[in-house]
Design a protein around this nucleic acid. Structure first.
Length: 177
DNA sequence: CGCTTTTGACCAGCGC
DNA sequence: GCGCTGGTCAAAAGCG
């Protein structure tokens, strides 16, 4: 099977060890799992990712650079706007909802300009966990779902689904800046 | 009965 | 200054 997840870590990384764990994903029968990790404003595009349309997708996805700027939702006055690290997962799947083991609650849905499919906004339901994620399907390839994670989970996984948490752990390690 | 989803409104940032 | 777009909130409905 070639359904193996292919995780592309920024090659510029030199601090932590590369993900040597054999990450296997049981999301379904035929899901091409492609991860496109975007570190802050810098999208990892191109590379050796199999999809030819990937660059275009990345372009449309990060068309507006402003979408990487996230303002702090603090009730305090002058909180500076910090940009959190976002991780864009590109998954080839028939379903939008990828159960990664965490509990998500949908809190919004908006139609994006360049996509005819709406974008869904989810938030982790754990107490004190402000992890958000967006799920968006591409217009060009409706078989491709882009899941953008924002933030880090600071609690154990809810279910014992797969070792997807291993992947998340790897990324959390990486994203601990 | 409690939680999740849905959906419209509201708001802030940016471009023109 | 206005309009557009993206992101969040909140109320109500829906479901197990």
């Amino acid at each position: 099977m070639e359904n193996f997840p292919t995780i592309f870590f920024p090659s510029s990384s030199s601090t932590q060890a590369p993900p040597s764990s054999s990450a296997s994903l049981n999301l379904g029968s035929s899901h091409d799992f492609q991860v496109n990790i975007s570190e802050e404003t810098d999208f990892v595009r191109g590379s050796n990712i199999g999809s030819t349309t990937f660059s275009n997708q990345s372009k449309s996805f990060g068309g507006k650079e402003t979408d990487n700027q996230v303002k702090v939702v603090g009730t305090k006055k002058g909180e500076k706007k910090i940009r959190k690290a976002k991780y864009a997962f590109q998954t080839r799947s028939q379903v939008d909802i990828l159960d990664d083991g965490y509990r998500w609650r949908k809190y919004g849905q908006k139609a994006v300009k360049n996509n005819k499919f709406p974008r869904s906004y989810y938030r982790c339901t754990h107490k004190g966990c402000n992890v958000k994620k967006q799920v968006q399907r591409l217009t060009k390839d409706e078989g491709v779902v882009v899941t953008t994670y924002e933030g880090m989970h600071s609690h154990p996984i809810d279910k014992s689904t797969d070792n997807f948490e291993h992947i998340l752990s790897q990324m959390q390690i990486y994203s601990s800046v």
